[in-house]
């Protein structure tokens, strides 16, 4: 049985832990709001780009002469997985889930006899990936310095990746990140970004394609596409960064909320134990005094 003093110290330490988790919870909640706004503000752009790319892609015939970012390198041997995680922990299973999704993809590819490489964005992904695939990490982009993801960060990552693609380091690239569904649910996601996934059967919108047919392109479609495709990759990475950021704070808020509640429960339990012991000690003392007095 712990002594009274030890119990008191224990309660004190749990209380200060609770203060920390509560503060982190509130910080995460306010940062979450900002991150959510950022993610929403970026949506019109990424939606428009995706629309334009898919309408253009449906108008050209993909052949070996097409831009490599849409036609691919013609091989399917080496896959790159870009793992985008947070930079900090204390967010429940957020980072673990992304890494797990990436690993699952990697295992599937390895089982098919492909070679798998990794590119890490964010600090928390590296140790986990390195443990399982020590030699497969070809690059890393640190995002710790940035407060909110800026478009220039996404640009730097995309440029690096496109350079590596052009120099033939890999044939296919996937992007693993966490999709921000709501504050309470973030879903790890693995999307193919290079070559651009074939336009998901442009939902049979006849009127749309008829309207698109009348559009005049300046310069021609291929050239526009060549300028647009790298941008599309940047935008997708940017979106992943923003979604991750929002998801991270959502997850952190939930985790810290739980931690605060657990700390509260623990304080209650320890206080009861403390009070019982104190009472027992007083009773014993009283018995001693009374029986001492009677003996006189």
């Amino acid at each position: 049985m712990a002594s009274l003093k030890a119990l008191k110290l224990r309660i004190g330490s749990v209380k200060s832990t609770q203060k920390i988790t509560k503060a982190l919870n509130m910080v995460a909640a306010s940062k979450l709001r900002r991150a959510q706004q950022n993610a929403q503000a970026a949506r019109p752009y990424s939606n428009r780009i995706a629309e334009v790319v898919s309408s253009l892609a449906s108008r050209i015939t993909v052949g070996p002469q097409s831009h490599k970012l849409i036609a691919g390198t013609g091989k399917d041997a080496t896959h790159l997985i870009i793992v985008v995680t947070g930079d900090r922990g204390l967010a429940g299973a957020f980072n673990t889930n992304i890494v797990r999704a990436a690993r699952k993809k990697a295992e599937d590819l390895l089982a098919d006899g492909k070679q798998v490489l990794f590119y890490i964005v964010g600090r928390k992904g590296r140790p986990a990936i390195q443990r399982f695939y020590p030699k497969a990490i070809i690059g890393q982009h640190d995002t710790l310095a940035m407060k909110a993801p800026a478009y220039s960060d996404a640009q730097a990552i995309a440029d690096d990746i496109i350079d590596r693609f052009d120099s033939g380091q890999f044939d296919v690239a996937h992007l693993a990140y966490s999709e921000f569904k709501s504050v309470l649910s973030q879903e790890p996601q693995v999307d193919q970004i290079i070559p651009a996934a074939p336009p998901a059967a442009v939902t049979g919108n006849k009127a749309d394609s008829a309207a698109a047919a009348a559009v005049e392109y300046e310069p021609d479609e291929e050239e526009i596409l060549a300028a647009l495709l790298p941008k599309n990759i940047t935008v997708q990475i940017y979106r992943a960064l923003l979604e991750n950021q929002a998801g991270f704070y959502g997850s952190q808020r939930t985790a810290m909320d739980n931690a605060t509640r657990n700390a509260g429960d623990m304080i209650n339990r320890l206080s009861i134990q403390y009070n019982r012991q104190r009472q027992a000690a007083i009773t014993t003392e009283l018995v001693e005094i009374i029986s001492g007095a009677e003996a006189l």
Partner: peptide
């Protein structure tokens, strides 16, 4: 009422 166009 401009004709549809797409340009860089």
């Amino acid at each position: 009422g401009h004709a549809p166009v797409m340009t860089v």
